[in-house]
Design a protein around this nucleic acid. Sequence first.
DNA 1: GTGCAAATGCACACCACTGTGCAAGTAACT
DNA 2: AGTTACTTGCACAGTGGTGTGCATTTGCAC
Lengths: 205, 205
Amino acid sequence: MSAMTTGNTSRADANRRRILDVALAELLRDPDASMDQIARAAGVVRRTVYGHFPSREALISTLVDDAVHALAQAHAAGREGVEDPAEALARSVLAIWHIADRYRLLVALAQRTVTMQGIRERLTPVRESCAELLRLGLEQGVFSSPLPTPALAYVHEQILFALMEAVNDGLLEAREAGRSAAVTVLTSAGVPATLAGALVGKIGG
Amino acid sequence: MSAMTTGNTSRADANRRRILDVALAELLRDPDASMDQIARAAGVVRRTVYGHFPSREALISTLVDDAVHALAQAHAAGREGVEDPAEALARSVLAIWHIADRYRLLVALAQRTVTMQGIRERLTPVRESCAELLRLGLEQGVFSSPLPTPALAYVHEQILFALMEAVNDGLLEAREAGRSAAVTVLTSAGVPATLAGALVGKIGG
DNA sequence: GTGCAAATGCACACCACTGTGCAAGTAACT
DNA sequence: AGTTACTTGCACAGTGGTGTGCATTTGCAC
């Protein structure tokens, strides 16, 4: 067999594609899916997968590389030739989102770690309490968002995670981070920036 | 030894505490840290850890439970007795942030999966391109945020992830999600909600 | 100092998964 | 039919972890 070094049969190509496709789906279902699970799901034997990818890491790497490449491409195409930052940002998001439809699963799979799963699950009550708060604010017109309340709650949760990560990475001063986080959360809920700043300043001062 | 079933020596308690503390730190450094690594870091033998926690999962569970409990506590205390949704939300975030200082690491550890690491690392160029866009917008006064640019870029990245997850979980219609995502990203950058909506509507229409 | 609970240091069984080797089979192209 | 490239189906070694049992030692408390 000579370990299918560089050859290109139609069959081999089709298999490679199918393996990648199935791996994407399978890894979403279970981020720790074994090579055997992936192979079986692709209707192929484990040994065959190793014929196409030298290691598990290589397989995943290929997957991620493809996704990121497509994403970067979309982002670049979206902002290309647009001078207004707001419009460029919006176009970038729309473009990314369009192609991300296919990779949404992959990118989101990152959230699905066992650990992460546990954390977010147990955090549900808190998230729901926040959702209630958001619903109230939207009704009263204090907040404003095109998102359904539960989705907005997801966003807020992730904003906090993002800023914690930013502090961990030294991008943000821990001292000021709390106030900044509060302002950012309010802002993302549609509260005008100046108002949000004033409110948090009043409380935090 | 009877496997230290329910007894309470001062020594045992101190060890238990230390194990939990060290486990928190160690799991941050490496989310897949083994029981042996944790034990050693706590100045204790692996066998001893199993004396306090029946399994690795139980240990992590305890850790997460503690963190979530403290978080929920803080959230509840923060919004208690406040009727204005905006203020309640802000207070909640501030309260959470205050105690989260200790658990920031734990909560953020979720982001540090091997897979996640790879994804975010390869996404760096895109994130930097976005950061550039944000910097420009902030300079021109189109955007507004208390956050340093790189941190804001983190936030945007996570917002997209959050909304992808929301779509996966059926909280958001995939069709509309793109436009909503764009609006949310702009809004979180301080663009007034009405402006953001109009801009995206003009583009996406 | 005696006694009890806890900690230690082995040992072991076990597991699931990875990556490789090799011989035999099978599809495709000529 | 013959050749080539890919696939299959084993078998195997290796790895790195988990959880447990047991005899021994250490520390705390009374």
